[in-house]
Structures are given as structure tokens and as C-alpha cells.
Amino acid sequence: MTDNAEELIHVEYTQPWRYRWSTGKYIGKAYAETKRNKRLMGNRCSKCQEIVWPPEPVCPRCKVPTGEKWVELGDTGTVLQYTYQVMPMWDPHVGRARAHPHPSANIRMDSGCHIMHRLEETDPEKLKKVKRVKAVWKEEGRQGGMDDILYFRAIDG
């Protein structure tokens, strides 16, 4: 198509995507509680009485205003599912891999709601035996949010 040996042009670039978002009132309350009191707080739907996590102004099931009936989720739960990660999990804040890989898990809290978080145990064989877990909170440098919990640690019973 061209006279000489073709030179094909391609452009490689890294595009920065800047973001800035506000938590709003409901997530803000949850973040403030993790930061200040090391507590996970959800709100209870006024209609179905289920815990909404993360807290929202409208119940995702009933589509009615949830109100501000705050309930504590507690620190203990049961692992329903987990992944053994070969690839470290991406940190959505910066779009890069997290420095310290931990398995992700779907945990059913004793209060009844499900949360996604990380497990302390990284050995695939030992992971199979992990059932009951408890949140391990950061003692220092809590900023608000789920990263105020380092991971969930296996407990007895």
C-alpha cells in the first residue's frame, strides 16, 4: 500500500483517571465508625428488617427508604467461600496490585449480613479448615473504610 517499507505508528500512553467522590451520609457514618470505634455498622431496612451493608438510604430489596436504624455487624462470622489468590488483589483506589496478597472471602457475619474481605491465612491447605473468623483491626492509621480491618483471623468455635 505504501511505497517504502511500511512504518506503522502506534501510540502507547498511560492515561491518568482522576476521581474524587464523597461518601455521603450513610457510607460516611460507616467510615466514621470504623475509624473512631473499630465497629462495622449497617442500617436495618424499616420494611424487611434485613441489615443493609454497605449502608444505603434505600433498601436494595424493598426499594423503600431504610431510615437510620443503625446496627452493629459484630466482628465474628463464618467463611462461606474463599479464593486462594495466586495473583494479588487489585486495589481499586489506585488500580494497582496490593502489596501483600491475601485470599478474598465471602463472610457471613453472625448478625446475618454478608461481607467481602480478606483472610489472614495464606496457606491453601490450612485455608480449607478456616471456618470461624474474627476481624483484626488496625490499631493505628485508621482512615475510615473497610481497609481499617487488616484481615479476618481464624478463631476456634
Binding site: 501510540v11 500512553y13 498511560t14 464523597s22 455521603g24 489506585v94
Partner: peptide, 13 residues
Amino acid sequence: DVFVIEGQVAIPN
């Protein structure tokens, strides 16, 4: 009890 989160993600193209 409101937080503002700000940062950026690098998208390779």
C-alpha cells in the same frame, strides 16, 4: 461523618 476520597488510576493504552 462524611469523607471525600480522591486519587487517580493509571490506564495503560
